[in-house]
Amino acid sequence: MIRLREIRKSYRDGDRAIEVLRGVSLDVDEGELVAVMGASGSGKSTLLNVIGGLDRSYRGAAEILGRDLASLSERELARHRNEAVGFVFQSFNLLAPLDALHNVMLPSFFGPRAAGKDARDRAAAALARVGLAGKEARLPSRLSGGERQRVALARALFAKPRILLADEPTGSLDADTAAQVLEVVRDLNTRERLTVILVTHDDRVAAMAGRALRLRDGMLEPVTFARAGGA
């Protein structure tokens, strides 16, 4: 499903080059929920951007759903973002002038099929799936933080992607709302075998994942949690 080999990525800071990923390799199977932890600036978001096809300026091999991202054209990569993966960000990243329904159906604006009645129906169903039925016409400014993140989640799931990339999705939410959002994510993972890469600072969130990894010094290392009642 996801196969990364020796991914290297550096940024320039003035004259200095900062290498945030120093040969990251990762294999994720279909239906896995993998948590990626790490300090701020450790490269977690960069890793998601590589998998999601938002960042092409890396070295190494990123093979997603059997396709080497480096070999895709700009149009094919856009289609990859449109159909194969869904993004959820910490700061929701909704379009302020669009209501919840249109924010959710935003991918259809750029997909192979034009936005129409079918897209509206699917967007409404996606909103219902995250518990926001009846709030289709609300603008983001009229929604709570948890509701906004659920709209963002509905948008990420709109095109029925096989991979969900969640970049600290609960970072801006209170504990109860965060638990609700995570419950939706875990439900999608278990019921629909959605592959999830979840970036988080929170050990409790990471402990929910089937596998947890930490990015340190540009490399991934496994994390083991002591589970209550575990062996």
Binding site: E74, R81, N82, L94, L106, F109, F110, G111, A159
Partner: peptide
């Protein structure tokens, strides 16, 4: 916002 559009599949052309 333009970044968001890119993340949901907008091409350079779009």
């Amino acid at each position: 916002e333009l970044g968001i559009l890119r993340s949901v599949g907008a091409t350079s052309r779009a």
